[in-house]
Amino acid sequence: MNATLDLLTTRRSVPPLLLDGPGPDRAQLETILTVAARVPDHGKLAPWRFIVIADAARERVGETIAATFLADNPEATPERLAQERNRLMHAPVAVAVVSRVGPHVKIPEWEQLLSVGAATMNLVIAANASGFATSWLTEWYAYDRRVLDALGLAPSEKLAGFVHIGRAREVPSDRPRPSLSEIVTYL
Rank of each mutant, 00 (worst) to 15 (best):
A150I: 00
P40F: 05
R146N: 08
T185C: 05
S173P: 15
P92A: 01
R177P: 00
L180H: 11
S13M: 13
A54H: 01
P92Y: 05
R49W: 05
L29F: 09
H104M: 00
A36L: 06
E30I: 12
R11A: 13
R87M: 08
Y141W: 13
P74T: 03
Q83I: 10
W48R: 07
P74C: 08
S156K: 05
P24K: 10
P155A: 01
L33I: 13
H90E: 10
T68F: 06
V163M: 11
N2R: 12
I65R: 05
L17Y: 11
V116G: 04
R146H: 11
L123V: 14
S99A: 13
S156W: 00
P22I: 09
L153V: 00
T185P: 01
F162M: 05
G43A: 02
Q112W: 01
P78S: 09
P103D: 15
V52P: 02
G166A: 01
A154S: 10
G43C: 02
R85D: 01
H90A: 15
A36M: 07
N73P: 03
G152N: 04
T64R: 04
I183W: 12
D149S: 07
L81F: 07
A76I: 09
R87F: 07
T4D: 10
A118M: 14
R177T: 10
V97F: 09
L187V: 11
A46D: 15
H164N: 05
A168T: 05
S135M: 04
G152V: 04
H104Q: 00
L18T: 00
E84G: 01
L187E: 04
A71M: 13
N86C: 09
K44H: 14
W136Q: 11
T64M: 00
A127T: 07
L19A: 11
L180T: 13
N2H: 14
S181P: 13
V147I: 11
